[in-house]
Amino acid sequence: MTVPAAPDPWVVGPVTRTDFVRYQGASGDMNPIHHDEEFARAAGFPTPFSVGMWQASLLGTYATNWLGAENVRNFRIRFLEQVWPGDVLTCGGEVVREYDHEGERRVDIELTCRRQTGGKAVTAWSTFVLPGAQPDGEADGA
């Protein structure tokens, strides 16, 4: 294996509305459901909740710290459970497969952001190039 070992799981939180609003300001997604109590309740939610792309981006942070921001080829995110103020999130990942693709050594990883309940908030799948690794000639890539 030429893939560096996955970093230890990254614990974030308890998360706050300030975290959500800081992300909203940075991303430009000002949907009031993430900060306006009355708006959230009118839409059927008990309180404002996090922006899905915030916790997805935490997984991006975990992954690029692991394998390098310049090496990412794709990043696919599925949003599962909402994240609420006070939640404690744990971001982690594992290698799915390592293979050659068009002359590059690549690795597919699966990333998970879990809430303190054990529920999955976000799952993501990503492909990175392993720049130091030479293709081994096995045409097992997709």
Binding site: F39, R73, N74, F75, R78, F79
Partner: peptide, 14 residues
């Protein structure tokens, strides 16, 4: 109705 919208999936290809 944007108040009823949530994000389901997002994908980036670089």
């Amino acid at each position: 109705d944007f108040a009823m919208v949530v994000h389901a999936e997002q994908r980036f290809e670089y």
